[in-house]
Nucleic acid binder design. Structure first.
Lengths: 187, 187
DNA sequence: GTCTATAATATGATAGAC
DNA sequence: GTCTATCATATTATAGAC
């Protein structure tokens, strides 16, 4: 990995662990092994580097989710596989946690990848649920948009509860609870 | 309000808006109108003041929730009232957002009120759902613990999605989606 | 491309006068 | 109880040598 990539990788880790406000250029330099001058040669400053890091994390989240959504199985099976996929539960969601960062939300450039990620994710799940309802797999009374939004929220909230309890199990309970409710709508 | 209370109130606001890492003693002093010396007279430092602020916010969340839980109506009506209660959706949850704060999670004293709040909330909802299942209001197949955890997660995740989209509506969609799923379990 | 030097401002606190 | 002075360290860069 070259210096530029190491800087992005280290920034992604630090944003995940400490958020934007809690991540200093100095810490990024220390973790990446790059010097002061090296960092400012490759990036204009903290916001520029953060944009590269956030965009990369957003892309990765999307591509991982898409792998589950476009995988084999029925709609419910694919959604279940996505919800139950292995996750660094106690570290939280690398994209979702940025919504708590005032300086990220205040900067339209930094904010966009975060907003786009959740819009895409909710839309993609909405489409899957509509497909399941259309092919008779799911009950006609199920609301695709509301259900998709609730499922994404369960994941994001699951991270919050797991961190609060310092227990990955809580995340699993939230997901299982949601799947238990969804099950009643399977035909 | 005396100086001590103004310091706590200002710290609560700043922790809500910017988190622990993003809140400086200087900012607290400016917002509360208290001077440097005044702040260090009433509190030992930033962690001590934050503990007072976090404890207060946790108490308030709990007491507000309890007002809905012990209110009138069936179990489902009370849970619905709690989920749909008016909230500062775009500001996020003043307690839940602290789970993203590495310095809060690393300090057992600061962490405890956060952990206790969600344990209490989930247990309280679990009890209500078990009550509803017991009195025939809810289906026997419903899992109280999993469902309660999922509902709390929907709220916490709803805040995340609403902030990402900069839209309070998204929170409502998540809640409605969850209630839509729960409805199928009403007898 | 990377390094060191320099710097203005912010952070988190202590000391002691009033 | 509140105020101002002071302080060590961290933050977020810029400048210029190599």
């Amino acid at each position: 990995m070259d210096t530029r990539e190491r800087l992005i990788a280290s920034t992604r880790e630090l944003l995940w662990e400490r958020g934007y406000v809690g991540t200093s250029p100095k810490a990024i330099q220390a973790r990446s092994g790059a010097g002061q001058g090296s960092m400012y040669h490759h990036f204009h400053g903290k916001p520029d580097l953060a944009l590269a890091a956030i965009s990369r994390s957003a892309e990765e989240l999307r591509s991982r989710a898409e792998a589950q959504f476009s995988g084999p199985g029925t709609v419910v099976e694919r959604i279940t596989a996505y919800l139950r996929r292995e996750r660094d539960v106690l570290k939280g969601c690398p994209v979702g946690r940025l919504t708590q960062d005032p300086d990220v939300m205040a900067d339209p450039d930094l904010r966009r990848p975060v907003e786009d990620t959740f819009t895409w994710l909710t839309d993609r799940l909405t489409g899957l649920l509509a497909e399941g309802r259309g092919n008779g797999e799911l009950a006609p009374g199920l609301d695709p948009v509301g259900t998709a939004t609730a499922l994404v929220a369960v994941l994001q909230g699951g991270y919050v509860l797991a961190r609060a309890a310092d227990s990955a199990e809580v995340f699993g309970r939230a997901v299982d609870g949601a799947l238990g409710l969804l099950t009643a709508h399977i035909r």
